[in-house]
Design a protein around this nucleic acid. Structure first.
Lengths: 200, 200
DNA sequence: GTCTATAACCTGATAGAC
DNA sequence: GTCTATCAGGTTATAGAC
């Protein structure tokens, strides 16, 4: 774990720190000094390597968006799996990924608000909606219903607990370990629920 | 009640503008000058009436948190309604409220991240979990399951689309009117789905 | 590539006239 | 209560030495 910082190039050190600080505080509340301090490098080097705070942020943001859709896309595009199996896979992978990056959703969504158009083209929403086999499978079962309804519900059940996490953990009701255990339970529960929903 | 803009006191004008700007940009990205401009008042008056940016923000934040729970609490505490009826009511009211305040959830949740402890006590999460009749009704049906699972899923299905709204609307796939229509459909769909989920 | 020093600008807040 | 002018402090970014 120590090598993780020792052997890194300066550029990587800055990126590691920028990921951490930007994700935690958001773009506007982050000072370049915070990132320099966090990474142990000199403030001037940040501009030397990334030109500006904006560009450094953009680099982090692109990564985070890729994480947000990286787990989703392959499964949704897959054509050789049953609908239920895909739901299982999406839920399982997404929860695992979010347990490692709990503040990813709230970070990406709240930054999107302040940089309205800059990052939307990085999101393969069109592809999901128009080309995904997953959406087609939904349409087969519910031809007269907007398929987005089902996708929204699945993602909502998976992602929303992470958005609410600060409320539940800080309030002292559920601790970090309890939250993790709960999300592992949801890996089994959500696919069952989705199956039931699809049969209505 | 007074005329919406003409008869407002200066204090009210500032509050109206502060709600709008803070909600749209978040605390850190908001400049007191933005609020002064938006409300048409002089910058110095902001400090005259609210002492500081922090205190003005706090006033707005308290209001927004109250909105977020105001629709929820009465229904969850109610003891004379069936579980299914309560779900109907919560979904209906919450969607209506969020259609009027689409960026409320992402605002409150993302600001909570930057002001971790200051506002958590304003949220009646304990009351919901420990005293609500709604949670008890869930426990009756699923005594061996954490009742939060079901609450999370209901709220996730309702709230998550609003969190994702910028993605779907800006991408040109769904416009404002289409989104609104979809959320009205969900008022009928979600209660049916929850009913099915509860029977597993 | 890395550092120090500083420029250039912005932001919250207040003093003081009216 | 409201305005203008301005201060004090903080922020990004860069120039220039090493």
């Amino acid at each position: 774990m120590k090598n993780k910082t020792k052997d890194q190039s300066t550029e990587e050190k800055i990126l590691v720190a920028a990921r951490k600080v930007f994700t935690k505080k958001g773009f506007a509340a982050t000072r370049t000094r915070d990132i320099a301090e966090e990474s142990g490098i000199n403030l001037a080097l940040l501009n030397y390597y990334f030109k500006s705070k904006e560009l450094l942020f953009e680099a982090v943001m692109v990564e985070k968006i890729a994480m947000l859709f990286g787990q989703l896309m392959p499964v949704l595009l897959e054509t050789d799996l049953s609908f239920n199996k895909k739901v299982e896979l999406v839920v399982e992978r997404y929860i695992d990924m979010l347990l490692e990056n709990p503040d990813l959703p709230i970070f990406v969504m709240s930054e999107l608000r302040n940089h309205p158009d800059r990052f939307l083209e990085k999101m393969p929403v069109d592809v999901i909606l128009r080309e995904s086999h997953f959406i087609r499978q939904i349409q087969e079962k519910h031809p007269d219903q907007n398929p987005i309804h089902y996708l929204m519900s699945i993602l909502g059940m998976v992602i929303f607990p992470f958005v609410m996490k600060p409320v539940f953990t800080k309030i002292g009701k559920t601790d970090e370990k309890g939250f993790k255990a709960m999300m592992k339970e949801r890996k089994k529960l959500i696919p069952k629920w989705v199956e039931a929903i699809m049969e209505i």
